[in-house]
Simulated scan of single mutants.
Amino acid sequence: MFEYLGLMILLIGCWLLQIMMSYLQHKNYQKVINENKHRSSGFLGVGVSKAKYNLGKGVVLIVVTDASDNILDFREMSGVTVFSRFKVKKEFIGKKTTEIINEIKNQRRVQAFEQALAFINNEKSK
C-alpha cells in the first residue's frame, strides 16, 4: 500500500488541478458571456463543436451581430485542455456573417459558427 502512496498523491494532485482549471475556464466563459449580454444592442449566439468521442480539439464561439448581420464581436476558444481561453478574432469583426462563412476553413469552426448563427436568427425572430 505505501509503495504506491507517491503515485496516489500525484494522481489526486492532478485531479484537483484539473478541477481548479475547469472552474477557472467556466468563470472565463461566464465573464465573456456577461460582457456581451450587457451590450446596448446586438444579438448574442454561442456555438459549440466537439471532437468525436472527445478525443480532439473542440471549438466554442461567441458571436455578437447587429440587426443587419454585421459582426460586432467574435471570440473563439479552441483546444484540448482546460488551459484554453477565449481569444478575440479581430479579422472577423465588422464583416457580414455571409462573408465569414466562406472565409472559415476549419470544419469544427464552421459547425460552431452555424450553430451560433442559428441562435442569433432565433433571437431576431422573437
Rank of each mutant, 00 (worst) to 15 (best):
G42I: 02
V32L: 05
N28D: 15
L24Q: 15
L44G: 02
I62N: 00
G42P: 02
D69Q: 08
L61A: 02
L55E: 15
N70H: 12
I33R: 02
N70V: 09
L16Q: 09
F43M: 04
I62T: 03
G47L: 01
M20C: 12
N54P: 05
L24A: 09
L24P: 02
T65S: 07
K57V: 12
H38S: 14
V48M: 06
H26G: 11
L24W: 15
E35S: 10
H38E: 13
Q18E: 14
T65Q: 03
R39V: 05
D69T: 03
G47W: 04
A67M: 11
V48Q: 09
E35V: 04
S68C: 12
S40C: 08
K31L: 08
K50N: 10
Q18T: 13
K52N: 09
G58F: 00
A51D: 02
L61P: 03
H38I: 07
Y29C: 02
V32F: 03
L17N: 13
M21V: 10
K52W: 11
V48I: 15
F43V: 05
S49L: 04
N28R: 10
N70Q: 14
S22G: 15
N36V: 00
K57N: 10
K27F: 08
Y53A: 13
G56D: 03
E35Y: 07
L24H: 13
L44C: 01
S68R: 15
L16K: 13
G47F: 06
G56V: 03
I19W: 11
N70W: 08
Q25T: 08
H38A: 12
I33S: 01
K57P: 06
G56W: 03
G47T: 03
S22H: 09
V60L: 06
L61E: 02
F43G: 07
H26M: 12
V32E: 11
N34M: 08
L44Q: 00
K31P: 05
K37D: 05
S22W: 08
V46A: 02
G45T: 04
E35F: 06
K52L: 14
F43Y: 14
S49V: 05
L61W: 03
V59G: 06
K57G: 06
N54G: 11
V64Y: 01
